[in-house]
Write a protein that binds this DNA or RNA. Structure first.
Lengths: 226, 226
DNA sequence: CAAGCCCATATTGTCGACAAACTATGCTGG
DNA sequence: CCAGCATAGTTTGTCGACAATATGGGCTTG
């Protein structure tokens, strides 16, 4: 009895993916009131699967719903966005620690290779934000799965990352930051390669802390208006 | 335009609550394969709202679903259960720290009064596990909301607690532990009352760490079979 | 002229039936 | 006697229509 994992993709899954990417990419902006019929015609779906997808999105915190009053894309206040980074800080710290204890040598090697690829991408793009964002996402993704902590990875990859990515396009990093971030990534991987979980956790927390302070600064400068 | 919060409870919400409590209370045991029609007749619902509730429960990790093959209550392995406590440790630690910074004096006073009530409950019940469990839940609930970190509270109260409570009835604390746990609670509240966030975080992490080690010991003893 | 109420409309919540897919039983062949 | 396959049955996924409710505009009234 092989676990063939039939993996038949259902309409609801399709709807879920469509909506999630639409929200993350900004096609559905925060605060938008979205009607079910609009969405149906937009993604060529029927209301049944759509509603199921909406329920899932709501449960993940990307949508807010009021009975009989429609569904809106969640709109984070500045303080909520900052709080999100505090959560990321500790959770990714734990992920880094456990990754240092559990990643295979092969995975670590792949991770280092990934960083090399990121470096060339950044050089070619002259520090453009987009590639940095993708590379950053890739890096944190690998750490999360490498922790072998299923629930932790699920929470990071399923909940937090999508919310952060929602606001990513407004959080363009300042010039020169890509290189510095890459350096921080390298030091984290070094710690992991040396199986030093404590150091990996410390460096990861500081890495995300820097990002949080960067955002807080921009908010105080009034550059970032949400 | 007062925000009257119409709060009309929909059938889907009803279904969601019913299922969640049924899972937590153990009426639906981990690993059970549950048919939609069974559930409909059981809770007197129709399949539409039920499916929406199932989607939400799946998204929260309490159910696993395979297309066309039914839905089962999630069954945690021992390692997954332990990993859950590692996540709780850091998240509740953060909650305690932020609660120390942000709870109102009134909330802190209420929290202390709650602990007094717990003490009498434990004495009356001669350390019976059930009251301890309820009191423990209440305590951690207040800390989470007191952190004023919406997302953090949402993750703790919405996701983690229900998974932990699912296995609570098997995790009966050893004799005498209720009193010790209460003592730990008191010290945490003391730290919060003194607005010492760092200490509150430390004590909370140690508190949950103790619970985790307790479980690990029981698993190694073979007492706890999941 | 402003504020509050009432009603029409459009949207959401709910229901029952149809179609597609997996599971299990029985049969055939080696 | 066991293994593999085909088929029947049950369960899930999907669809369209009906009912309930919040929003917004117009009206009345102070």
């Amino acid at each position: 009895m092989l676990d063939t994992t039939p993996q038949t993709y259902t309409r609801a899954d399709e709807a879920f993916d469509c909506l999630q990417t639409a929200i993350v990419k900004g096609d559905l902006a925060p605060g938008d009131k979205i009607g079910e019929l609009d969405l149906c015609s937009r993604f060529d779906l029927t209301r049944g699967p759509l509603r199921e997808a909406l329920g899932r999105l709501e449960s993940r915190g990307l949508l807010v719903r009021r009975p009989h009053a429609g569904v809106r894309v969640v709109s984070l206040s500045t303080t909520e966005l900052v709080e999100l980074y505090r959560i990321r800080e500790i959770m990714e710290g734990l992920a880094a620690r456990q990754a240092a204890e559990r990643m295979t040598d092969q995975e670590i090697a792949d991770l280092q290779a990934t960083l090399d690829a990121h470096e060339t991408m950044i050089d070619e793009a002259h520090g453009q934000a987009y590639y940095q964002a993708e590379g950053d996402y890739d890096f944190h993704h690998r750490i999360a799965t490498g922790s072998r902590n299923v629930k932790l990875a699920q929470m990071l990859l399923g909940d937090l990352y999508y919310m952060v990515r929602m606001y990513r396009y407004r959080l363009s990093t300042s010039a020169g930051r890509p290189h510095r971030a890459l350096g921080e990534h390298r030091r984290i991987v070094e710690a992991i390669a040396q199986r030093d979980g404590e150091l990996a956790e410390f460096l990861m927390k500081r890495h995300i802390n820097a990002a949080r302070k960067n955002i807080e600064k921009k908010i105080q400068e009034g550059v970032l208006t949400i």
